Amino acid sequence: MDGERLFCDVALAERIERAEARWVADCSDAARARRGDTVGFARPLAGGIASFAEADSPFDKVAGLGFEGVPDADALDEVERAFAELGAPVQIELCQLADPEVGAFLTDRGYRLESYENVLGRRLGDAVDEVSGDVRPCRDDELETWLAAVADASLVVDTEGLPSHEDFSRETLVTVLRDMAGVRRFLAERDGEFAGGASFRVTDGIAQFAGAATVPAHRRRGVQTALLRARLAAARAAGCDLAIVTTLLGTKSQQNAQRQGFDLLYARAILVKGTSATRSSGAESRQAS
């Protein structure tokens, strides 16, 4: 493991946030493709993306904002109207390394701070730790089992750290996990049983980790550590130079990631305007460790 800490400057933060925006847009498009309609949108906004996938989806948000200056007021007016017409609040996830004028601009428009999430990263230039033989890629014929088990495990949240300000129903969780565009899924087994699952996606050389959960009966047995190592090895083999994971603050998921060499890069502020919704931010830490 590389002993040098990963430093995040504005350029690296912008690279990560643009990858996040691309993933949000692709997942939003996947939701419309699944339904076979054109309800919702994924439209550019000041270098980021404004997305509405469907009601109570974690892909209903504005991501990647703040690296091309303050958004045009008229353009943001249109985005806010589009969300309002669909009965949804506007949720903006703003990187702390974005243009500081953006936060003041949003506050003046009535956005309120609801929460934070952490973005952690790790270089992939060096070899990763040995991968457990109990972790393997999920086969196509195991997809439904993987979706159901990860959704069920995600509903039993870990009590460490700050809680999420959002939540999912089981049905929504399964749908969201299915719509995660371009991911590679892994599963872990213990004593012949499904113990946990996780996934990652590659965007511009960045391995984006998400969708991790451990079945409650198998927690505190190293399942998430094994899944992290397997994804790190797969991401390195895929030619990625960086792996990132988003967690809630002070959680077991954050601790597990830091034990595997991830450094805390920056936080995102979750700013909301409109009626609150019970949705998940998609942070890996809400998936139980």
Results as ranks from 00 to 15, higher is better:
Pro71Gly: 04
Ser132Asp: 11
Pro71Arg: 03
Phe67Asp: 01
Glu117Arg: 08
Asp134Thr: 15
Val79Gln: 02
Gly87Phe: 10
Val128Ala: 13
Asp134Pro: 02
Val128Cys: 14
Gly87Thr: 09
Asp129Gln: 15
Ala127Asn: 13
Asp77His: 11
Ser115His: 15
Asp129Asn: 11
Pro89Glu: 08
Asp108Ser: 13
Val128Phe: 08
Ser132Ile: 01
Leu113Asp: 07
Leu97Arg: 04
Glu78Gln: 13
Leu97Cys: 04
Ala82Cys: 05
Leu124Ser: 09
Glu114Asn: 10
Phe67Arg: 01
Glu80Phe: 03
Val119Ile: 13
Arg112Ala: 14
Ala88Tyr: 01
Glu101Lys: 11
Leu65Arg: 00
Ala82Gln: 10
Val119Pro: 00
Arg122His: 06
Asp74Trp: 04
Ala82Tyr: 04
Arg123Trp: 08
Asp77Gly: 06
Glu68Ala: 13
Asp74Met: 14
Leu76Gln: 07
Pro100Asp: 03
Gly69Asp: 06
Arg122Gly: 03
Tyr111Leu: 07
Ala82Thr: 04
Asp108Glu: 15
Arg122Pro: 01
Gly87Asn: 08
Leu124Asn: 05
Asp134Tyr: 10
Ala73Glu: 15
Gly110Ile: 10
Val79Lys: 00
Val128Ile: 14
Pro71Phe: 01
Leu94His: 02
Phe83Met: 05
Pro100Arg: 02
Glu80Lys: 08
Gly103Arg: 04
Val131Glu: 11
Leu86Glu: 04
Ile92His: 03
Thr107Pro: 00
Pro71Asn: 06
Asp72Phe: 10
Arg112Gly: 10
Asp74Val: 15
Glu85Ser: 11
Asp108Lys: 12
Glu114Tyr: 13
Asp72Ala: 11
Leu65Gln: 02
Asp134Ala: 15
Ala104Ser: 13
Leu94Trp: 02
Val119Cys: 08
Glu117Lys: 09
Val131Trp: 06
Ala75His: 06
Gly125Leu: 10
Glu101Trp: 02
Val70Pro: 03
Glu78Trp: 02
Ala84Gly: 09
Asp77Ser: 11
Val131Tyr: 10
